[in-house]
């Protein structure tokens, strides 16, 4: 396998150019997929036989929760890449992806709470999955706070990477212990994602939404990373030329 692309990714200039080419496609597909998924989920999917129409909330809740978890895992992967290969772009990715992941966790928590009101009769129930999401949010807060507290840019990235790796080792343990805690204290209620054999019209919008959310994440991450790369590389000639070009365009 040819690994040159991997080493090229380490070069901020190359990243800036290639991401500029990807960004429009990602943004368009994210917008289209989310729009189509939302319309299909809201209008065309049949209502659930138990939960009625409130189950339509899962078309946001599940993709957001999925994305929130995989973002944390990707933080750790980017952290390992940054620590092992000293790749600057990975450092940028760790710090720029964390806030997006935190926002996704917020979406998952809020929609879960709203869904809980008609289903359980309370805004918040200490359900195993919701509780695990809440803990994930705290983990994100820790990474963001640590990144802001350390002034040296490289140390901040490395410290965040280590915290993300420690967190990712902890996530399965947290998940299992919360599940166990839940069974110890209350009988299992039915949860937002438990679906016995969804028909095609029900899970197709879910699939579209999930892909749409992933595209959305990629697009926003690239947008955030591009600004940060410009900022970090402000002493190099290519970044100065790019900034001058952008200023000329906006003026």
């Amino acid at each position: 396998m040819n690994w040159t692309w991997f080493h090229k990714l380490g070069s901020p200039k190359w990243f800036y150019e290639i991401s500029g080419r990807w960004l429009p496609w990602l943004s368009i597909s994210a917008a289209l997929l989310i729009l189509v998924g939302a319309v299909m989920g809201l209008a065309f999917a049949p209502p659930d036989y138990q939960q009625g129409n409130s189950f339509r909330i899962i078309y946001i809740h599940v993709p957001a929760a999925f994305l929130a978890q995989s973002t944390y895992i990707s933080l750790a992967i980017a952290g390992i890449v940054g620590l092992v290969w000293k790749m600057k772009i990975a450092d940028v990715a760790v710090q720029q992806a964390a806030p997006i992941g935190a926002w996704m966790t917020v979406i998952a928590l809020l929609t879960g709470a709203v869904w809980g009101k008609p289903t359980w009769g309370a805004w918040w129930v200490w359900d195993a999955r919701l509780t695990a999401m809440l803990i994930l949010l705290f983990l994100y807060f820790g990474i963001i706070a640590l990144g802001h507290a350390i002034t040296n840019r490289d140390s901040a990235a490395k410290a965040c990477a280590i915290l993300a790796i420690v967190g990712v080792v902890n996530i399965p343990i947290i998940k299992y212990s919360v599940d166990w805690w839940n069974t110890l204290h209350q009988p299992a209620t039915f949860t937002i994602t438990e679906k016995p054999a969804m028909p095609m019209e029900m899970w197709l919008p879910l699939l579209i939404m999930t892909i749409g959310f992933y595209c959305f994440f990629a697009a926003v991450l690239l947008m955030r990373m591009r600004i940060e790369v410009l900022r970090r590389e402000s002493r190099t000639r290519w970044a100065q030329a790019e900034v001058a070009r952008q200023i000329g365009r906006s003026a």
């Binding site: 129409n53 409130s54 909330i57 979406i107 929609t111 009101k117």
Partner: peptide, 13 residues
């Protein structure tokens, strides 16, 4: 009857 919940969660998101 679940309109408030569905629309508010889509709106917030």
């Amino acid at each position: 009857n679940h309109g408030v919940y569905v629309w508010s969660s889509y709106g917030i998101s």
